[in-house]
């Protein structure tokens, strides 16, 4: 691409530190990927702690893990995968410059994200009712050792909580995108914010793709 000739609509969104819209888009996308890589390490620490303690207390972790509701977990995974599907369709709509479709798919993604958080809230509430929340009132019937059981539920809340926090941030980003999408700020030539927000949303989905089997499923067969 020539460095001197731009379509007018491209220069509209081009920041002065970039030569071309293409260079700007590549830089922004790469920046988002670098951020996501730091997130891999962030969540990685929790996955690491989970693996170490699960291997130290396999029996208690197995019993505690099977007390979670796998059917609700699977349904919520499906909800999240649907939200990724609507998000990728939102990005596609933006690529094609279809504003109404973009707004529609962003709203759907937001609703599905809210549905996921709603189910999560229901599950957490269950833990409070069952006294499975680590702390003074903790009691887990299935295990003689309460300590390792508390450890499992501490990790459960830390991992699902941090994931849910990312969902809340994602929902905020979706609202911001919606605000600008409705005003027609995104065009086929400039839709980088939608694109990188999509990367973030799918990344949070990938984290759940690993959390679900590790927390809900892998000890199910021992029952």
């Amino acid at each position: 691409m020539s460095e001197h000739v731009h379509a007018p609509v491209e220069t509209l969104a081009l920041r002065e530190q970039f030569n071309t819209a293409e260079q700007q888009k590549e830089s922004v996308t790469f920046g988002m990927w670098i951020f996501l890589i730091t997130e891999v390490m962030f969540f990685g620490g929790l996955f690491l702690a989970y693996t170490v303690y699960r291997s130290t207390y396999p029996v208690v972790f197995g019993v505690a893990s099977t007390s979670l509701n796998a059917v609700i977990g699977a349904l919520n995974t499906a909800v999240l995968l649907c939200s990724s599907f609507t998000m990728v369709l939102a990005v596609r709509s933006a690529q094609l410059g279809r504003r109404r479709a973009l707004v529609l798919f962003l709203i759907l993604t937001l609703l599905l994200g809210m549905a996921f958080l709603g189910v999560k809230a229901y599950e957490w509430n269950e833990k409070f009712v069952e006294h499975h929340v680590p702390g003074a009132g903790f009691h887990f019937e299935g295990a003689a050792e309460q300590g390792p059981a508390q450890l499992f539920f501490s990790l459960y809340f830390a991992m699902t909580g941090l994931h849910a926090l990312h969902m809340v941030v994602g929902a905020g980003i979706l609202c911001w995108l919606l605000y600008h999408a409705v005003r027609g700020r995104f065009t086929a030539e400039y839709m980088t914010p939608v694109d990188v927000a999509g990367l973030y949303w799918h990344f949070v989905d990938i984290i759940w793709i690993f959390l679900f089997p590790l927390l809900y499923l892998i000890d199910r067969h021992m029952r």
Binding site: A70, L217, R220, H221
Partner: peptide
């Protein structure tokens, strides 16, 4: 997602 949930109920030992 359906497969991974279903397979979890089958006893595969460490292979789960």
């Amino acid at each position: 997602t359906g497969v991974t949930t279903g397979v979890a109920y089958i006893d595969l030992g460490a292979f789960s």
